[in-house]
Every structure is written in C-alpha cells, then in structure tokens.
Design a protein around this nucleic acid. Structure first.
Lengths: 256, 256
DNA sequence: CGCCAGATTGATACTGCTCAATGAATGTGG
DNA sequence: CCACATTCATTGAGCAGTATCAATCTGGCG
C-alpha cells in the first residue's frame, strides 16, 4: 500500500498538485488529539513572541491554528535570516535527535493561536500509529523542498525576482491559486525588515525594489496588503511562469 | 518510548552530538534489505551522471554507498544552485507526495556506488516497521536543518565566510571533528564551479576569495585537496567558533 | 499631541559579477 | 609519447547590484 493511501486524515485540500488523490489532507484537531491521547491545550501568543528559541529544547510540538509564524536564525554577527514562514495547519518542533536543541527560533508575526502537544505523547503516538508518522514524514519532506526553493531564490535570483517569487509563493499558499486577475490581493503580515531578512536583503533595498515594482506596474504593497497589478509580468518575474513548477504546500494541514 | 530508543539500527556513530545515546546510528545494508524485503541491487555511476532529474519521478529510493552526490536545481534562466552534498550512508528520494516530481537533480560528483530500493517496497516496509520510518523521519528533519544552515550561509555571510563555513562543515562530516591541527586536510571532490553553485557565487569570485584565504594563511586548496593552515582563524571565519553550534550530521547512516 | 516603529529617499562605498584573455591540468587518439 | 582538445583555474579591467549611513517622512497609538 502506498503511503498516501493510508486512511487517516479526512478531507482533501484543493490546493496541492495531488488534489483528489488522497495525499494532501486535512486532519481535524480532535482526531489528532485522540490519536495522541492528549488533552486540548491551546495557547495564544501576541505578535513578536517565540514558541521556542534557537539553542534551547522544547518538550512540545506545536500546531499553528491561527496566525503567522516565522522560523529564523541569528548568526554570530547578529545578522538574522528568516528560514520559513509557517501558516496555519502546520506542525512545528520536529528534530533530528531527541535531545537536539533547535537551530532556529519560531517567532510569531501576528497574534497566534497554537495547539501544544507534549513531545513524549506525540512520539509515542507516531510509533503506534504509522499513519500519523507517515504524514509527519511527508510534512518534513515538504519542508525540505520549501527550504530548497528558498535557497535557489536567495542564491541565484536578483532582488526584484526574489521578491516576486516570495510574494507569488505566499499568494499561492494563501489563496490556493496563482495570481490571475489584476487587483487580487493578500494580506502580508510582514514588515520590509521581515521581507529583507527572508530574502537576504536590507529593508532599504527592499523598499527601493518595491518602489520599482510599483512603478513598473507589477504590484503594490501598502499597509501590509499586497495587491497584484499585472499578474502576467509578476508571474514572469517570479520564475514560476517559465518552469511550470508550483509553490510547495504542506501535504497535511491540521484544522479545527 | 522515545523515538530514539526504538531498537533497530546497530552501532553508534562517533560524530553526532547524540553520540552514545542511541540516536545516531549505523544500519547495515543487509539488515535494511531484510526489512524492506528487497534484493540487493547495486549500481555504479561514473562521475557526472544523475540518479534522478528535476521534473521527473523515480520508482526508487537510493542509498549512497560510496562517492559524492550533489543535489542541484536549475532555474528558469539557466542559473544553477547546489542544494546539498550527499555523502555515503544517506538515503535519497523522499517526496512530500507519492506522485510528486522531483524539484531537483541528484548528480554524481565522483564515481558513485548506490543501492537501489524500489519505492513501493520501501514505503511498505516503513508502514509495517515504524522503527524504520522513525529513522527516515529523523533523516528528513536533519536534511531540513542542513538546508536551513545553508540558507543562513548564502543569505547572510560574506563570500569569505561562506567558503569557510562550507569547508568546515564538510571537514566535520568527513572527519568527525573540527579542524584542530594545521596541516589536516580533506579531499573535496569539487570544482570551483561546484563551490560557487553551492554558495551563490561565481567560480571567478570563488577563485579570488580562495586566493585571499590562502594569502591570509587560513587554508589552501589544490588539486581537490583542502588543507587547513590556521584552524583557529578558519573556525573564526566559518562562524562555528562563535556559536558553538555543530555542523548537522545525519542521525542515521547506512553502511555495508 | 507627541512618540515611535516602520518606510522612504539620497549620497556614497563596496562586494561580487561580467567579459575576456591566459595558463595549468587532464584526457584522447594516433 | 606527443599533439591536440577540453575542462578547470587564474588574473585583470570595468561595471552592476546591493549595502551603509543618515536624514526625513508617515501612520498608528497611548
């Protein structure tokens, strides 16, 4: 039996390429809690706090239920790199070794509601229920793929194209499709500093480049809302148009 | 029972931070084959071939037994980014969805011996044997961590420091410890182009920067052999000295 | 109203890239 | 074993893209 056909999650998600084949799935929080045999422990964080910090360990996994979380690392010289944005439905806290300390910090960008899952119980549940483990494994593979995508973006694209790529990726994650009509917009809970830290640029340069994109009529960013003006040109700049590749969306989302 | 204590792999590895706690393990190929119920199918590739290619699917997983493999992606404009170097003992071919196509190419840098594992059988084995799956999951988490490390390197360090970081990381993976004595050396099966593609630099700039590092007496690269001249200064430049973090080594290695 | 974080803009410096020429090493066929 | 081709590395000159520093502007909020 292929991993994908393990019957566990209920419902399919309309976004991912494997739509309808049972791979991209939604799991209900209560089903998860039952599998893990854990009580519902929800916690709400204001913007700007950390779920866990670089260099520490945590006895919990977290499921993001609402809000945006950024994974970031601070280097020896104080430079910060944002590694990934985590949107609702994803699981945080996986580690290569049980006692490993985190190599990055998970900080909230908005008010964020998370589900707290004791590590012991969750690990135990994965052993007794391979269906769960296989889904977590897929999620891990997905995160690697997203990290690879980011590496290409940072390493090999111009500032202009980096921004376009990131924005289109987030657009797709949030809306479930590529930008098509002029005027479509998403809410970006990000400052220019966040964008710069994610893309290996300074906030100053992000500002200039956004101005350019604006002037060229590709997109518009104002008050944390990004509006697409010219979807064709934006897709072109993002790099998604040429390859036909799609942004990577987690194969599993955990929902209330 | 913590995931780490699932008894499957035999032997511990002397490298990783969890040494001796049963987490970083070696698994023998014959044990793996027995678990997977697969025949021993080995294949040898000359340097410069691909195990699988970006945009395609593969019905196999691969275990690298000997040689170096690079994971790389080519962008719409032909620019190439090397995403990771895969050394012997690691498993390749995990995917977020069953029918997903690869977002990157796995190409051999040297003559490479790999073990070929049919995807169906391996997936099946992971379901029936959670011990195996848990180890693969850890490996996936490790790969994410390594990707994160690379992102920091590319996004936020100078060319000089990027090179130092990468070389120290590879040194650690190969030798099991940080450079300590002047004169210690490793074989890097890489051209300057490979190094540049991994670090988001041009081969020209890598050449210049290596010249500088040489002149400053940190290290020396010649005929694919990197010799450490000043371990202290090199560690400083690599960023490992300041944070105390260690290069990420896979928690599982599959050996003959 | 005043404060403050975030965004914008300008001037200047620097890092790393491009293009191009040359040199060194490696491989190939005769 | 040599002549040649090919790939890889080095070096120089000039340029492009991004950073830095600093000043100013804007909008939200106590």
């Amino acid at each position: 039996m292929p991993l994908s056909q393990i019957p566990n999650a209920s419902g399919t998600c309309p976004i991912c390429p494997s739509h309808g084949k049972g791979m991209c799935q939604k799991m209900r929080v209560e089903d998860l809690l039952q599998t893990v045999k854990a009580d519902r422990a929800q916690r709400t964080y204001p913007a700007g706090e950390s779920l866990y910090q670089q260099g520490t360990t945590s006895p919990n996994y977290f499921v993001v239920l609402e809000g945006w979380v950024a994974l970031s690392a601070t280097l020896e010289d104080g430079e910060k790199q944002i590694l990934d944005f985590v949107l609702p439905g994803e699981l945080l806290g996986m580690q290569p070794y049980d006692d490993a300390s985190f190599g990055h910090t998970a900080e909230t960008l908005t008010t964020t509601k998370v589900l707290v899952l004791p590590r012991d119980q969750f690990d135990e549940a994965m052993i007794t229920d391979p269906r769960l483990m296989s889904q977590v494994m897929r999620m891990a593979a997905c995160r690697e793929a997203r990290a690879f995508d980011q590496m290409q973006n940072i390493g090999r694209r111009s500032a202009r194209n980096r921004i376009a790529h990131m924005f289109v990726g987030l657009f797709y994650q949030l809306k479930g499709h590529f930008p098509q009509e002029p005027g479509e917009s998403i809410e970006l809970n990000l400052t220019l500093n966040h964008i710069g830290d994610a893309l290996g640029l300074t906030n100053v340069h992000v500002s200039r480049t956004l101005g350019e994109l604006r002037k060229q009529g590709l997109l518009h960013l104002n008050q944390r809302r990004m509006t697409v003006l010219n979807p064709i040109a934006l897709m072109q700049a993002s790099g998604y148009a040429a390859t036909g590749a799609r942004p990577i969306v987690s194969p599993l989302r955990i929902v209330v």
